[in-house]
């Protein structure tokens, strides 16, 4: 049992240290999320692509996506500068979910400034892949190739 006690003490020390040493999440203000109606209005005004993030408040993998991607300072900055970010709760905004035929969380839909769907992806997306998606849409590569081809061209 002595070994167990030592491990418990070590574990407590790690928890304490990591608690105090944990970095403050970058991007204090986060992504400037809008509702779908607000986003539509903004898109008409700014002619930027729209990023729709479909989630559920009780969806574990959506929270994973939020922590791993939407709390990254670089991602936050890029989205706020180049996109109209819209968050849709499937439980509360059933009409919007129906409009985009979304029944899976998390789902991302990128809408080009002309209203067409530029890209659509389900499930948690890794940060590096998500960054390539953001570039793909902002560089309007969807006009000439699909995302798989674009990804291959990046390697």
């Amino acid at each position: 049992m002595k070994g167990v006690k030592l491990i418990l003490i070590a574990l407590a020390a790690v928890v304490t240290l990591t608690h105090f040493a944990a970095p403050v999440m970058a991007g204090e203000h986060g992504v400037h999320w809008l509702t779908y109606e607000q986003g539509l209005e903004k898109q008409r005004e700014l002619k930027k692509p729209m990023l729709l993030f479909f989630h559920l408040s009780y969806c574990y993998r959506c929270k994973q996506m939020e922590h791993k991607v939407y709390e990254d300072a670089k991602v936050i900055r890029f989205i706020n500068q180049n996109f109209i970010p819209v968050i849709v709760d499937l439980d509360k905004e059933k009409q919007t979910a129906k409009l985009f035929e979304v029944d899976y969380t998390p789902t991302h839909v990128f809408i080009a400034p002309d209203g067409s769907t530029a890209l659509r992806e389900r499930d948690v997306i890794t940060k590096s892949r998500f960054e390539r998606m953001l570039e793909y849409v902002t560089k309007e590569k969807y006009k000439t190739m699909n995302f798989d081809a674009y990804e291959k061209s990046q390697f």
Binding site: L11, V14, V15, T18, H19, A22, P23, H67, K68
Partner: peptide, 12 residues
């Protein structure tokens, strides 16, 4: 379970 850092999860 304790999410010590975004990459580290501890559990007991």
């Amino acid at each position: 379970a304790y999410r010590a850092t975004p990459k580290l999860l501890l559990a007991m």
